[in-house]
Design a protein around this nucleic acid. Structure first.
Lengths: 195, 195
DNA sequence: GTTAAAAGTAATTAATCACTCACAAATGAA
DNA sequence: TTCATTTGTGAGTGATTAATTACTTTTAAC
């Protein structure tokens, strides 16, 4: 027999992410995933109810992992500007190490073909935006950010800049270092945030 | 018989864009396009060599149309900051009227499944980025932008912010007015550009 | 050691879909 | 009118692929 349910599940998730980078999602068939894991195609369905369920698990893995990396920075006390700085650096560094993330997150295949998966992604993004909004509010109270900023809108603009950058990185086949863009991006954004 | 080649071609392009908004690209089959145009499915292939050729035509239509709207602003003389302001307003207004654009441009289906289409999109984006870079250089010469800006990188950050915003709009099913975000986005970016 | 549950597979199915082909009808130039 | 070209179609093909089924093997708990 094979490995345990939990182990196989994780193997399938990892194989799916690896393949999403190598081939794009078109060739991300259950057969291709199975081949990479080293099991037969129907065995996939012993561990996941459907193909979509695999993608859902991948999205959740991404969300959980990202939260592990930057989650603390939202709740830790300290100057909000420094924390935002760190969030930008760490998020881009994290994504720079996991090319599958933009491929999966920005995939219309997930957004448009499965309303369920779409709300999973939206919920994740909403949570992020809310934390960011809260952080900007704190920064305004701490007088490190301009009191004229609309926290909610500002949070969404910052997110848009990050997401746009990551998307560009993905579209251009990862041909520049995402990590190296993090500090310049922060430098660029800073004047717009300062009082 | 039917209409002329050119007319049918345009009808197919328009049907494809309309469907990309309504259903997402999964259901964007040649059958669905044909149904919408009111012709039989094989007739599609009288006017386009392949399904990819349709998408290529759509991308080119998008690029041409966008260029018609904002192209002048790159070459017209005048203060660079005002021109950039107008570019942001007009681009977001234009995209706000054509929901198909983000659906098509940000589709991984196009980027990852067809190397040819991918380079079409990349070339378009490159052209845009170059013009923007040039505009920022002018702005620095005119002393309306900070001389410390790296024109190329700044252009890409601005593009990322715009693209991120448009992508968010698309992911959230167009549930906010893109046009209304344009002026606030410009207000947000301005402090980062000014000397 | 028995046995029930878990994990595995080969074979197949049913659906989808881009694309082809052989032929029909309309068009327009001669 | 004639006829070559263009536009159109119904019927089909071949390829792909998620999911099911019926069956086998392995594991681990008792």
């Amino acid at each position: 027999m094979g490995k345990s349910h939990e182990v196989r599940k994780q193997e399938i998730i990892e194989a799916t992410m690896a393949l999403s980078v190598e081939k794009g999602l078109k060739k991300l068939t259950t057969q291709a995933i199975a081949d990479r894991v080293g099991i037969a195609q129907p065995t996939i369905f012993r561990h996941f109810k459907s193909r979509d369920a695999i993608f859902g698990a991948v999205i959740n893995w991404v969300g959980d992992s990202l939260f592990k990396v930057i989650g603390d920075l939202f709740s830790t006390p300290g100057p909000a500007d420094e924390r935002l700085h760190q969030i930008i650096l760490k998020q881009l560094a994290f994504m720079g190490k996991h090319r599958a993330i933009p491929r999966v997150l920005f995939s219309d295949r997930l957004h448009l073909e499965s309303p369920k998966l779409k709300t999973v992604v939206q919920t994740m993004m909403d949570g992020y935006a809310q934390r960011l909004t809260r952080l900007i509010e704190e920064g305004i109270e701490q007088r490190v950010f301009s009191p004229e900023l609309e926290p909610d809108r500002t949070a969404r603009f910052i997110l848009a800049a990050i997401q746009g950058l990551v998307m560009r990185w993905s579209v251009y086949e990862f041909n520049f270092s995402l990590e190296e863009e993090a500090e310049p991006l922060w430098q660029f954004l800073q004047p717009s945030l300062r009082p």
